[in-house]
């Protein structure tokens, strides 16, 4: 009897291989001091720029956490979102911008509340954190939509950030923010939501950029090193795809069979 479950041997090999490449990137960056010079996505640079603009205009910044629970399959996306929330809350506190975070998830609510409170505390502005800073509007998708649309109009927001896991409410809230004269910064992992984000956002993060957003925000050598590791993983994936392309074209099923072991 095989120790590893049949059909999952190569999955484990890939997982370990990817992990080693990412750890190599981290080691190279942290221990050898070769921090990769990675271009910051326009969406991350735009957050700082538009938080400053919000302060100048005297209008608030809105951050939406995305829908669903942390225990669902969207958990990883929510974790990535929390990194951006921390960065944005710190920027808002530092520049003394009015910051509002809305959530349709009761499980994300306490986590987001704690992160924002800590960010304000770190920036030495705990008094800026009020009861209105984080708001649970509804866990029903369309009720949340109508509530957030009302909030956008009432508060006259200047920046709407929605990076994370979104569903059909995505396009509605983006359009409502645009109607309020706000700049939209978004990010989506699901291929189903990426077109909506691309059309509705002024700046947006696509796919893996959402997971890397925390690293882009912090410019921390360890996190940047992990991005180098990610690129190496993608290079490995491209090599396997090209190899498969050549072998299948040559009539060999070797790689196809190998992937199923």
């Amino acid at each position: 009897m095989s120790i590893i479950v049949e059909g999952r041997i190569l999955q484990l090999v890939f997982l370990l291989g990817y992990s080693l490449l990412i750890l190599y990137g981290i080691n190279r960056s942290v221990n050898q001091g070769k921090v990769p010079n990675i271009r910051q996505p326009a969406a991350i640079a735009a957050i700082e720029e538009h938080v400053g603009r919000a302060v100048e205009m005297g209008r608030p910044v809105l951050f939406q956490t995305g829908i669903g629970d942390v225990s669902s399959n969207a958990g990883a996306t929510h974790m990535a979102m929390l990194g951006v929330l921390d960065y944005t809350a710190k920027l808002a506190a530092n520049k003394e911008a009015k910051f509002i975070c809305t959530t349709p998830s009761p499980t994300l609510y306490p986590m987001a509340e704690e992160i924002i409170r800590n960010s304000f505390l770190t920036e030495g502005k705990p008094d800026l954190f009020t009861d209105d800073t984080i708001q649970f509007l509804s866990n029903q998708q369309m009720s949340y939509c109508s509530a957030v649309m009302h909030l956008m109009k009432r508060e006259n927001i200047s920046l709407n950030i929605q990076i994370g896991f979104f569903q059909a409410e995505n396009l509605i809230t983006l359009e409502a923010a645009k109607d309020s004269g706000a700049v939209n910064i978004g990010g989506a992992v699901r291929t189903l939501r990426i077109p909506g984000m691309a059309f509705g956002c002024d700046y947006f993060l696509m796919g893996e950029e959402v997971f890397a957003a925390g690293a882009f925000c912090s410019r921390d050598p360890l996190r940047l090193g992990s991005l180098l590791g990610q690129d190496l993983c993608k290079l490995a994936a491209i090599i396997v795809i090209l190899l498969g392309f050549v072998l299948v074209a040559a009539g060999s099923d070797f790689l196809v069979n190998l992937l199923t072991i």
């Binding site: 750890l23 893996e208 997971f211 890397a212 990610q230 993983c233």
Partner: peptide, 14 residues
């Protein structure tokens, strides 16, 4: 995009 996202998720986990 899916391959990139999975690699991103592994990196986030690490």
């Amino acid at each position: 995009i899916m391959i990139g996202s999975v690699v991103g998720a592994v990196s986030l986990l690490i």
